[in-house]
């Protein structure tokens, strides 16, 4: 089994095919989208492939150490950031092909006009622990 992170971006991903902001959808289209996402997560739980899913607020800041005895420096909110993560799902699957298959399904979630969003999702493998058998 291998873990993959499916990353959804507020900004930074290539534009999706059906690129309409959600507040321009109809309420029914929003409901259909939510239901699709919920069903997707439920299905992965049943197949034993779901690990975690979280959403992030769009606001945040950069923070770094600024030397002994000083408070950390902060820079934000993220106005200048090109890449902004909206949330993630972590899946534990048999391999890369399955991870891509699932990301494809997630990207097919319906949006404006009830048509798939075709949103670009980032698929990133976890670096795992070293195997027991090495030779």
């Amino acid at each position: 089994m291998a873990k993959y992170l499916l990353l959804k971006h507020y900004r930074g991903a290539p534009a999706s095919v059906n690129d309409v902001p959600m507040d321009r959808w109809t309420p029914e289209e929003i409901s259909a989208h939510m239901q699709y996402m919920q069903d997707f997560a439920d299905r992965l739980e049943k197949t034993g492939e779901f690990v975690d899913g979280q959403a992030l607020a769009p606001e945040g800041a950069w923070v770094r150490y600024d030397g002994e005895g000083r408070p950390p420096v902060t820079d934000g909110p993220f106005a200048e950031t090109k890449d902004l993560i909206a949330g993630w799902m972590i899946i534990d699957v048999d391999g890369y092909d399955r991870a891509v298959e699932l990301a494809g399904e997630l990207s097919a979630a319906p949006g404006a006009g009830g048509k798939p969003i075709h949103e670009w999702l980032e698929v990133r493998p976890f670096l795992s622990a070293p195997p027991t058998v090495t030779e």
Binding site: P21, M22, D23, R24, W25, T26, P27, E29, I30, M34, A55, A57, P58, E59
Partner: peptide, 27 residues
């Protein structure tokens, strides 16, 4: 303002609710 409030919402449920309000009025 509903769309802006959704952007700032502290919980997912509120964000969804506010987005729906914006969508309802826009429709």
């Amino acid at each position: 303002l509903y769309a802006e409030a959704a952007h700032k919402a502290p919980t997912l449920a509120e964000r969804d609710h506010l987005t729906r309000q914006a969508a309802r009025i826009n429709a």
